[in-house]
Amino acid sequence: MENESREKFDWSKFTIRTPINASAKEVFRAWTSQEELEKWFLRLAEFSNSEGLIRNKNERIEAGDTYKWRWHGYPDSVEEFGEILELNEKDFLKFSFGKAGIVSIKLTEQEGRTFIELTQEDIPHYKTTEENYHVGCKTGWTFYLANLNSVIQGGLDLRNKDRNLQMD
């Protein structure tokens, strides 16, 4: 019975929806430049435009940009590469997330809060990716969205920045 329900589970996507106590404009800005992403998400968030030129840290990203990302707690050899697929000026961003699929960020305002709806889809479906991409990414995104909420409200940055405590 357990095996049967595991096989019926849709490992190809997940959605997380969480409130952030800030305006949609402020939350959207946190996703759209190297400078802002490095405050709450990444150690390095380098973007290149469609001509291959590296964007300035505070320059806003655009559809067609490519990226190189590195995380705190991991060596430089752990990098993610992808492309900004779509974005508008206020509440939607979509990007490829390396081999782990496509991530969409949609913002809505409700009762003085901004809700982030993060969907990761097109997750490859074979035994080795079920935990790495579905469970691992969902766990990671849950942490980083909580960290975004903390940082954007002037709270603590919860990331491990100690270079002596790195994951492999």
Rank of each mutant, 00 (worst) to 15 (best):
T128W: 10
S96G: 07
S150M: 07
W69I: 08
G73C: 01
L107Y: 09
G154C: 07
N49I: 04
N21E: 13
I16F: 06
F41K: 11
I16E: 09
E59N: 01
E38Q: 12
D10E: 07
K90N: 15
I123M: 03
E130D: 08
E36P: 01
D168W: 04
Y144V: 09
L156Q: 14
G140Y: 13
Q34A: 12
R70Q: 03
E121G: 00
T139N: 10
L44C: 10
E46S: 12
G155C: 03
W71F: 14
T119E: 05
H72F: 12
L85C: 03
E4T: 13
K138I: 11
A45R: 03
A100R: 13
S5H: 11
W141R: 09
R163M: 00
K25G: 04
A146R: 15
E86G: 04
R60K: 10
L148F: 03
K99P: 13
K99H: 10
N149F: 01
E111D: 12
Q110P: 02
E2M: 09
I61C: 00
G52W: 06
L93P: 10
T114W: 02
E51Q: 13
L37Q: 07
E117H: 10
E38S: 07
F9T: 14
P124L: 02
F14N: 02
K68R: 13
E109D: 06
G82E: 11
I123V: 00
E46N: 07
G82T: 05
T142H: 01
F47Y: 09
R6D: 10
D157W: 04
W141H: 09
I54E: 10
K127W: 10
I102A: 06
R29P: 08
D76T: 00
L87I: 12
E62C: 06
T32Y: 06
E109Q: 14
T128H: 12
W40D: 08
E117S: 11
K106T: 14
E51D: 08
I61L: 01
P75L: 00
D122H: 11
Y144Q: 08
L158T: 08
K68P: 03
N147Q: 15
